[in-house]
Design a protein around this nucleic acid. Sequence first.
DNA 1: CATGAATGAGGATTCATTCAT
DNA 2: GATGAATGAATCCTCATTCAT
Lengths: 205, 205, 205, 205
Amino acid sequence: MSSADDRALAQRTRILDAAQVCFQKSGFHCGSMATIAQTADMSAGLIYRYFENKNAIILAIIASQLDIIRQRIRDLRAAEDLGAALLDYFDSQCDPEQQQISVPLFLEMSAEATRDPEIAQAVRQFDDTILSEFTDWLSRSPENNGFGLPQDIAAERALGLMCLIEGLKVRKARNPDMDRALLKKAIDASLTNFVKQLPPASPAD
Amino acid sequence: MSSADDRALAQRTRILDAAQVCFQKSGFHCGSMATIAQTADMSAGLIYRYFENKNAIILAIIASQLDIIRQRIRDLRAAEDLGAALLDYFDSQCDPEQQQISVPLFLEMSAEATRDPEIAQAVRQFDDTILSEFTDWLSRSPENNGFGLPQDIAAERALGLMCLIEGLKVRKARNPDMDRALLKKAIDASLTNFVKQLPPASPAD
Amino acid sequence: MSSADDRALAQRTRILDAAQVCFQKSGFHCGSMATIAQTADMSAGLIYRYFENKNAIILAIIASQLDIIRQRIRDLRAAEDLGAALLDYFDSQCDPEQQQISVPLFLEMSAEATRDPEIAQAVRQFDDTILSEFTDWLSRSPENNGFGLPQDIAAERALGLMCLIEGLKVRKARNPDMDRALLKKAIDASLTNFVKQLPPASPAD
Amino acid sequence: MSSADDRALAQRTRILDAAQVCFQKSGFHCGSMATIAQTADMSAGLIYRYFENKNAIILAIIASQLDIIRQRIRDLRAAEDLGAALLDYFDSQCDPEQQQISVPLFLEMSAEATRDPEIAQAVRQFDDTILSEFTDWLSRSPENNGFGLPQDIAAERALGLMCLIEGLKVRKARNPDMDRALLKKAIDASLTNFVKQLPPASPAD
DNA sequence: CATGAATGAGGATTCATTCAT
DNA sequence: GATGAATGAATCCTCATTCAT
């Protein structure tokens, strides 16, 4: 029983790994089931024992990407130098390795969220989670590894931080060879304001 | 003569408008020529009198989107309240109307830039233009409607500004109903740092 | 009236010349009306004023080819050296010039005769004419520029001659660079028997 | 394993048989994949599992035709009465049965050799083989079933023989009901010269 | 469980033909 | 007469999905 479940899980993983590679290379719609099967080194028919259809694979890939991203984003909070960590985060994309964030998939899934309600919901829920985790982090007291920002400020900074992270992904897709040093400065400039200090005139706000 | 050219131009526009609608709705790869033809209210074959193939349409759409975005971004520089203008920019998306930026198309084109060299080049050239325009703007003297930032700071802030703009687009796609007030605050917080003041330690730089 | 007829004839000729070029290059079925129109430097629609449809053009081209071939074959009878004349006949193919026999068209029309009854009839009638002209030639008395062969022998030699001519065309299509000297010898060897002498044992036949 | 290969081979054969029928009936360009599929009693898509595209089928048909012709031509050398054998060869065409030479296909492939380099090469190589086999045959000593012609004469007669064979095919296409007796005599007259005797002045050669 | 042959709908594209101007 | 825009059917080909083995 358990061994059968293990096998099923392993097969699913094998398929998803292959699908990730294919989708990354060709996009959700041009990555074909045949190619996925070939990449997974199994027959096309077998895939349907583990996934109802192609869309199920796409959804699973999206869920998996969201999981990976969530974890990577959580890891950011442990970083000594948040800017450097973001640069790394931003950097480790587009690897053929597994467990890596795929920028093209991220963008495509975001575009698809505009069309497919199921994807929209998954993405939305992910965003809510991340945002609230960020807010929590920023508002926690420094002795609890937080930044001690007031709740409302924290929420707004969390949103800004998310924009930054996602903006960086777009940069990465559009200009993968961008000057790293310049980028680091741009990131640091943003972060200065976001997380390291309260806004100058916050009492007057 | 001129009337024939007019007609040709009108037809091209009609096709591109239809294609924009279809691609927005279904993505570049799922938007079919048949659907475009139907939307444009013409036969599928006729499209090929005006565009060599589907890819040519995709490239034209991308070029048109980049043009629109470029113009919209240039307009930002004339804004009284840059934050509000960005919010507007961010807001006027996803309309079925023309001359509107389409967030899904923007994201898909960015993802596709990862795969198609022709798209990559178009996007890259666009980015370079915008970045240098931004840098120029930020480094111009205030009396010339600039911010008087030193060149190197200006370049880094330009990059940050671009990340912000694109991050906002991703936000829009993933969470179209986001709290506007919160967003405005997040934008303003970023802008404070980006364009309104020099970095704290600038004398020591 | 007459000038209108002249114009019509000129237009037909222009179209047929263009069609010949196109069909030669691409075959009857792949040579498109659009290409023909372009080659003839006229609009696609205009062609239909002079020919009912594409098939009518094909038939006209075939008729024209048969005319050209008929004339060329008739010219053979005036040759000093029939073998050399045949080599020339064989040689002057595939020129881009008009009024030339086109080997590919000849072969295609022969193949098509297998399928289209109209073409079959045209071709058949042509063959009958040529064969009887050949027979007549071979059986005419030498003082009338003939070979004085008895009627039955003449008929059989006429058929053999025709096979030779057509066999040479196939050769030309399949191996356009064939050794000319060798070919001349082969032709002469055939002709020796065909037209220059009676069969050795004809009295005993 | 072997059974899978068998199946694949059988399918390929089924497709090629169907294609042969269709191409014969409509020509290479008008015989459509849909018709071939229908004739082969399978779906259109399935054909693409066995052939990369339509052109691959055309090339395979041509290769197969060349094989059949090559074999049939080789068989000629074993004939008691070469003239009668040629008449048979010439006769057994246009059958819907397999392993038969198809005159229309032969003509079309020869025409197409004029346009498609790949076909040109296949045809050219075939011609070279046949010509050298003929030359060899004619130059072999009579006790080795040859005709003992000197090498150079043999080469020229081989070429003449090939013209005759191909000329007969053209005849067949253009006038399938030709008088058989007359044809036999024409063939025999040609052969007399080609293979049964040395040229008159051979001692002086 | 696994295969991969088979299907059939759908996609991009071409082209003979028509017709308003 | 002449144009060339427009049509729509047909063509080649792909691919998600099913199913007999």
